Amino acid sequence: MKLSALTKVAAIGGIAALTLTSCAANESASGSTEGGAAASSLSGNLIGAGASSQGSAQEAWVAGFQTANPDVTVNYDPTGSGAGRETFQQGASAFAGSDRAFKLEEIEAGPFDACAADSGIVEFPAYISPIALIFNVEGVDSLKLDAPTVAKIFSGEITSWDDAAIAAQNEGVTLPAQNIVAVHRSDKSGTTENFTDYLTAAAPAEWTPGAIEEWPTEFGGEAAQGTSGVVEAVANGVGTIGYADASRAGDLSTVEIKVGEEYVAYSPEAAAAIVDASPLEEGRGEHDLAVTIDRSTTEAGVYPIVLVSYLIGCEAYEDAANAELAKAYFNYIVSAEGQDLAAESAGSAPISDSLRSKIQPAIDAIS
C-alpha cells in the first residue's frame, strides 16, 4: 500500500528525529586539493532507513560524511531490513540499508516511489560481517558446534546443554544439565534470513523452513526486537544462545562453527573471504549486485554464517537533490576511507578492491 502524502511527511519527520551525528573528523568525501580538503558544495537532507546491523557503521559514516560536507544532514533510522525496504519503496526515504537484496519478484511488483518512472534500482554490498552465535552458559567460555546441531538447537529439538550432540563436539568442557533458551529476532530481519540461509544450505535435513526473514513461531524460543534486543536477551538470560551481527557480540561467549573438518571462529577476514569467493546472482539488472553466498563451503579458514548488508537506491531519482546526495554518500561509504572507518567502529570486514570495482559503475549510474 502506498503512503499518503501526510503519512510520508510524518514518516520522514520521525526518521529525521533520529539523526545520527558525531564530531569525529575525517578527510573530505568530495575530493581534495594540494592545499588540503576542498570545500564541499553539497547541501540538504538525505534520509535512509533499514538494517540495524549497519547501525554502528552508519553512525561512523554519517559522522565522517557530515564532517566533510557540513551543509548536509544524513538521517538513518535503524528500523530493521524489512521496514527499511518498505520505507524506501513507499518513497519515505531516499535509500535503504538491508541485510538482503530485494527479491526479483519484489522488484517486478514495485513500485519504488522515490525513483523516477521506469527507473531500476541500485543494490550493492556495503557492509560485510560475520553473524556470531552468542551464548551465556555459566562456566562455559567457548563451544564448538556443527550445522546440524545448531539447527536442532534453534528448532527446539535439542533442549539441554548437556545433550550428547553438543558434548561429543566439546570434549573436556563441563556442560550443565540446563535448559537451552534459544533467542531469535521478533521482527522481520535480514539477519534471520542470512542465519536461516546458512542452516538451509549446511543442514537441510535438520532445518526445513528454508531461508526466512520471520522466525517460525512453531519452534518456540524467546523473541527479541532488533540486534540490540537479541544481545540483551542473551546477556541477561540463563542458558541462552542467539545470533547477532558479530560487531555487537561484545564480551559474550561465541561458537566456533564446523567447516569441513575444522572449527572456525568468526572474524572479519573469514567473512570477507567467503563473499569474494561467491558469485553474483543471475537474472538481475546491470546495477543490482546481489551476491549468492556459498554457505555449504568446506574451504579452510572460511566462516559461513556471514551477513552481507546492502545499500539500496535508485538508478534515477524523482528528486534530483536526492540523487546528488545519495550518490555522494554511497561513494563515501564504499571508499577505502569509509570502509576502514566502519571496520574500526563496527568490526566489519572492508570490501575488497575487486568488489569495489564492481560496485563503482552502479554508483556512477545514479542520476
Score class of each variant (00 low, 15 high):
Gln360Pro: 02
Gly91Glu: 02
Arg295Lys: 14
Thr192Gly: 04
Gln54Arg: 08
Thr298Cys: 09
Glu261Lys: 14
Gly82Val: 12
Glu59Leu: 14
Ala316Asn: 13
Leu175Pro: 03
Glu108Val: 15
Lys258Glu: 12
Arg356Met: 11
Ser348Val: 13
Ser43Pro: 00
Lys8Pro: 04
Gly36Asp: 02
Ser4Lys: 07
Val291Glu: 01
Tyr332Trp: 15
Val231Tyr: 05
Pro148Leu: 07
Glu337Cys: 08
Thr159Met: 05
Gly221Phe: 03
Tyr198Gln: 00
Ala326Gln: 09
Ala24Thr: 13
Ser354Trp: 13
Leu143Ile: 02
Phe124Cys: 03
Thr240Val: 14
Ile333Val: 15
Ala249Arg: 12
Ser52Tyr: 10
Ala116Trp: 04
Ala223Ser: 09
Asn194Ala: 15
Leu199Trp: 02
Ser160Tyr: 10
Ala38Ser: 10
Ala224Phe: 02
Thr159Pro: 09
Asp288Ile: 06
Gly242Asn: 12
Ile366His: 01
Pro125Trp: 07
Thr200Gln: 05
Lys152Thr: 05
Thr200Phe: 01
Ser81Lys: 01
Lys152Cys: 03
Thr87Glu: 13
Lys103Leu: 14
Ile15Phe: 01
Glu34Arg: 13
Asp276Met: 11
Glu232Lys: 13
Lys358Gln: 13
Asp163Trp: 04
Ile359Tyr: 03
Lys103Trp: 14
Leu104Lys: 15
Glu315Ser: 05
Asn26Thr: 14
Ala25His: 08
Gly229Pro: 01
Pro350Trp: 12
Phe65Trp: 01
Ser81Cys: 00
Ala205Ile: 09
Ala51Asp: 15
Glu262Phe: 02
Ala17Tyr: 05
Pro148Met: 11
Val150Lys: 06
Val306Cys: 12
Lys258Gly: 08
Phe124Asn: 04
Thr21Ile: 10
Thr254Lys: 12
Pro176Thr: 06
Tyr310Ile: 06
Gly172Ala: 01
Phe330Glu: 07
Ser186Gly: 11
Gly97Gln: 00
Ala164Asn: 09
Ser348Asn: 15
Phe195Tyr: 11
Arg100His: 08
Tyr266Asp: 15
Tyr329Val: 07
Asp187Tyr: 01
Asp294Trp: 03
Thr298Leu: 09
Val122Lys: 00
Asn170Cys: 00
Ala342Ser: 11
Asp294Cys: 09
Glu106Tyr: 10
Val255Gly: 12
Ala164Ile: 02
Ala116Tyr: 04
Ser40Asn: 00
Trp207Tyr: 08
Ala320Asp: 13
Pro111Trp: 04
Asp319Cys: 04
Ile12Trp: 07
Leu104Cys: 10
Asp141Asn: 14
Cys23Leu: 15
Gly229Leu: 03
Ser40Ala: 00
Asp163Asn: 10
Ala244Ser: 15
Ala25Ile: 08
Leu42Gly: 00
Ser53Ala: 14
Gly31Cys: 07
Ala167Ser: 09
Ala164Leu: 06
Ser32Phe: 13
Asp163His: 06
Thr217Gln: 12
Gly338Phe: 05
Ala349Pro: 06
Phe102Met: 05
Asn170Ala: 01
Leu145Cys: 03
Leu104Gly: 15
Ile47Leu: 13
Pro130Thr: 06
Tyr266Thr: 12
Ala39Trp: 02
Gly82Thr: 08
Cys314Val: 01
Ala5Thr: 14
Gly84Arg: 05
Ala165Ile: 04
Ser22Asn: 11
Thr292Trp: 03
Thr33Gly: 15
Gln66Leu: 02
Ser309Cys: 14
Ala249Met: 11
Ser354Asp: 15
Asp340Ser: 15
Ala290Thr: 02
Ala117Pro: 04
Cys314Tyr: 01
Ala182Gln: 10
Ala290Asn: 09
Asp77Thr: 08
Asp99Phe: 08
